[in-house]
């Protein structure tokens, strides 16, 4: 049971990550591979404020989200000079920069040693000590992010984001300052990723830089491609699928000496097959 709750919490942490990245990649068409950087900044900022400064969970999380958003705005200003493949490459670079800073600014982050002993969230005297209570908190926050995103997607703003994806120059002709829209959505989604980071840090109670590298960005990207671009429910399903799949493969019964490797192989092969036969993902409405 604890094991299932653990998986459910992971799912609740990845839902905001996947949903927010889908707003950027699937709706707005910006192939960002730097989402884990904002996830990491959220995790580290929350942790440092709670552990070093004794802040409460809520104010620490809010400040961490704002920091992630500001960093994204800065990155977004630079990224606005790039398109398509170059955009992806530059965003790649940002993830590596943030990862390197987390790894090497040892006086602040303790580098590769990571930061242990992060307290579980405490809100109005209520401590989310047990995994079940944490799950409820995480699900509530994930649901909030989902509903905010769904609101954006259903509004005219969602239509504008898709317009940027389809033809940014033509959209500009019709009176939209698309740079502003891109910055806003990039900053906003980075805040959502920061929120997930704060949740992750206070759930695992230990963080180190390795969680927030390129691999993680690609993992989140895989969730939304698999679930389907420009479909929020798809992102939720993608997150569920990619969290459960490695777990299910544990029970397949590979010989124990090669089990770990075989799981990776099957996992990779399944992704390739899906892209071959359903390139728009499970529920996708948009092809890259």
């Amino acid at each position: 049971m604890e094991y299932l709750i653990h998986l459910a919490i992971l799912f609740a942490i990845y839902v905001p990550l996947a949903v927010s990245l889908n707003l950027v990649v699937g709706y707005t068409g910006l192939l960002s591979v730097t989402h884990a950087a904002f996830y990491g900044v959220g995790a580290y900022a929350t942790t440092l404020l709670v552990v070093n400064f004794g802040w409460g969970f809520i104010p620490a999380l809010l400040v961490a989200m704002i920091l992630s958003g500001l960093l994204a705005t800065l990155f977004g200003l630079i990224l606005s000079r790039f398109r398509d493949d170059y955009y992806a490459l530059v965003s790649f670079g940002f993830n590596i920069i943030v990862y390197s800073i987390l790894l090497n600014w040892e006086s602040l982050t303790r580098g590769p040693l990571g930061i242990p002993g992060i307290p579980r969230p405490e809100i109005f005297g209520l401590t989310f000590d047990s995994n079940l209570s944490f799950l409820i908190l995480a699900l509530a926050l994930a649901l909030t992010v989902y509903l905010v995103s769904a609101g954006i997607v259903k509004s005219s703003l969602g239509r504008v984001l898709k317009g940027i994806r389809e033809d940014e120059k033509v959209l500009a002709i019709f009176g939209y300052n698309t740079e502003v829209f891109k910055l806003v959505i990039f900053g906003l989604t980075a805040m959502m990723a920061g929120l997930a980071g704060g949740l992750f840090a206070t759930y695992i109670t230990f963080i180190d830089p390795s969680t927030f590298g390129l691999n993680e960005s690609i993992f989140i990207l895989a969730m939304i491609i698999l679930g389907g671009m420009a479909n929020l429910r798809g992102s939720v399903i993608g997150a569920l699928f990619l969290i459960l799949l490695p777990e299910i493969l544990r029970f397949v019964g590979f010989p124990s000496d090669i089990a770990a490797q075989m799981r990776q192989v099957v996992y990779g092969a399944l992704l390739v097959l899906l892209m071959l036969y359903r390139p728009q993902g499970l529920l996708g409405e948009y092809k890259l």
């Binding site: 954006i152 509004s155 005219s156 703003l157 504008v160 317009g163 959209l171 502003v180 829209f181």
Partner: peptide
């Protein structure tokens, strides 16, 4: 069609 007649600013578009 709708996209060329709805609000041109972020908040206006969000709360159309």
């Amino acid at each position: 069609i709708l996209i060329v007649i709805t609000s041109r600013n972020v908040l206006g578009a969000l709360f159309e």
